Amino acid sequence: MIQIKTKAFRLMPVNVIWFADKPQKWQCLYSYYKQSTHVTPVAGYHREDFFTKIIDLTTPLEIIETGFDQKTAYEIRRAIKDGVTTTIETDLKHFVNFYNLFAQTKQLPRIGVNINKYKSRLVVTKAVYDAQDIVMHAYLVDNSMKRVRLLYSASLFRNEQDTQLRAIVGRANRLLHFKDMCLFKQQGFDVYDLGGYAVNTNDEALIRINYFKDSFGGTLVHESDYLPFPALVLSFFNKMFKS
């Protein structure tokens, strides 16, 4: 279990608790439970379903690889032939800049200084091709639960029209996931969490993301997010005054 103190809407102190069991009722005024293993309502909280795909890292590596679909297995081998290498990135500012450039091209929210609250719990990895960082992953690591959870994934293209480079980046992303599994398995982690799964969605972009995650095999897991009601009230007024 991980606990991180932050503020909701820059106003209300919130204790964010990851991977816990049943939320404590007496914490409902200031605690936000992320990916709780409990899946029924709890008084004082607003519960939302959360689904994710996980890979069991206690399984032998060769068995994990048999769960990959043919395309993923091929692209991992091809990325290695392309000369893609992987390593750990220790410069958090570099990752933030890298991600924000990616977010700008995809019209996604940028990462702000709030990522510093995760600093001691983050591991960032990257894939490198032709002396350039082309893919990065940032993981939340829970040493007590032996679980790693993908928080951010980003890739950059020097030329959107360069179809060869785009293909290499796609292969590098799959290779980086595989190498990350190997890294965390070697470090003694048990669970590799791909960071969410959109169940019953009609959104084409989310369907493509689901397909990508399915290509690694794994197991679909049902968990819960529990939001404290004061945060919901602040959210309501925040939206109302902005409309």
Rank of each mutant, 00 (worst) to 15 (best):
I2M: 07
I4K: 00
T6H: 09
A20P: 00
A20H: 14
D21M: 08
D21N: 13
P23E: 04
C28W: 04
L29M: 10
L29F: 15
T37C: 06
V39L: 07
P41T: 06
V42Y: 03
A43T: 13
A43M: 11
Y45Q: 02
Y45R: 03
F51T: 00
T52F: 08
I54S: 01
D56N: 15
T59W: 03
L61R: 10
L61S: 11
I63V: 09
T66D: 07
F68I: 04
F68C: 04
D69T: 01
T72H: 00
Y74P: 07
Y74K: 14
A79V: 08
I80H: 04
I80W: 02
K81C: 06
K81Q: 14
V84A: 04
V84E: 01
E89M: 08
T90Q: 13
D91C: 07
F95S: 06
F95A: 09
F98H: 04
F98N: 02
N100L: 02
Q104E: 15
K106G: 08
K106C: 12
R110Q: 14
R110F: 05
R110I: 04
R110W: 07
I111Q: 00
Y118P: 05
K119G: 06
S120Q: 15
R121W: 05
V123K: 05
T125M: 14
K126F: 09
K126T: 11
V128M: 10
Y129S: 08
Y129H: 14
D130Q: 14
D130R: 09
A131E: 12
Q132S: 09
D133F: 06
I134Y: 03
I134V: 14
M136Y: 03
M136D: 02
H137S: 02
D142N: 12
R147S: 01
R149I: 07
R149L: 04
L150V: 09
S155W: 02
S155V: 07
F157C: 10
E160I: 15
D162W: 07
Q164M: 13
Q164G: 15
R166C: 08
R166G: 13
I168M: 10
I168K: 14
R171W: 02
A172Y: 05
R174D: 02
L176H: 05
L176Q: 07
F178L: 12
F178K: 11
K179W: 01
K179T: 01
D180H: 09
M181N: 05
M181S: 05
K185D: 01
Q186R: 09
Q187I: 06
G188V: 12
Y192F: 13
A198R: 08
A198E: 03
A198T: 02
V199P: 06
T201M: 00
T201I: 04
N202H: 14
N202Q: 14
E204C: 02
A205H: 11
L206G: 02
R208F: 06
I209D: 00
Y211I: 10
Y211W: 03
Y211F: 03
K213H: 05
S215C: 03
S215I: 07
S215D: 06
G217W: 02
G217S: 08
G218C: 03
L220P: 01
V221W: 03
D225G: 05
L227Q: 13
F229N: 09
P230N: 01
L232W: 04
V233F: 13
S235V: 03
N238S: 12
N238M: 06
N238W: 05
K239L: 11
S243Q: 12
